[in-house]
């Protein structure tokens, strides 16, 4: 019984310390990673496309494809939905 208690106490100390250390390392490393990413790979500023461009995109889509998409949306949404924009991925 006492052996078990000693072993459990040891495990408690080792276990809690390990969990703390790992999370601490993850935090420190995460902070370092944030700084490195900020320095070497800052997000590119994406210029907002004008709304007109989106409308043009709809017009460029083939009429048959647009009709199929319109019909599918109408069927799935019970006629309530409408297609406002079609963009190619």
């Amino acid at each position: 019984m006492n052996d078990n208690l000693n072993e459990a106490l040891q495990l408690m100390i080792v276990g809690m310390l390990t969990v703390f250390c790992i999370l601490l390392i993850v935090i420190l490393f995460g902070t370092l990673l944030i700084k490195l990413v900020n320095k070497y790979a800052p997000e590119e500023v994406q210029a907002k496309k004008p709304v007109a461009a989106a409308n043009n995109a709809v017009q460029k889509v083939d009429a048959t494809v647009k009709a199929v998409i319109d019909a599918t949306v109408a069927q799935i949404t019970g006629g309530k939905g409408h297609v406002s924009k079609i963009t190619k991925l």
Binding site: L33, K35, N38, A41, P42, E43
Partner: peptide, 14 residues
């Protein structure tokens, strides 16, 4: 003190 500028890359590296 740390602001994240590129979350997408960070989420991949993490």
């Amino acid at each position: 003190s740390t602001q994240i500028k590129n979350m997408k890359v960070l989420k991949i590296l993490f």
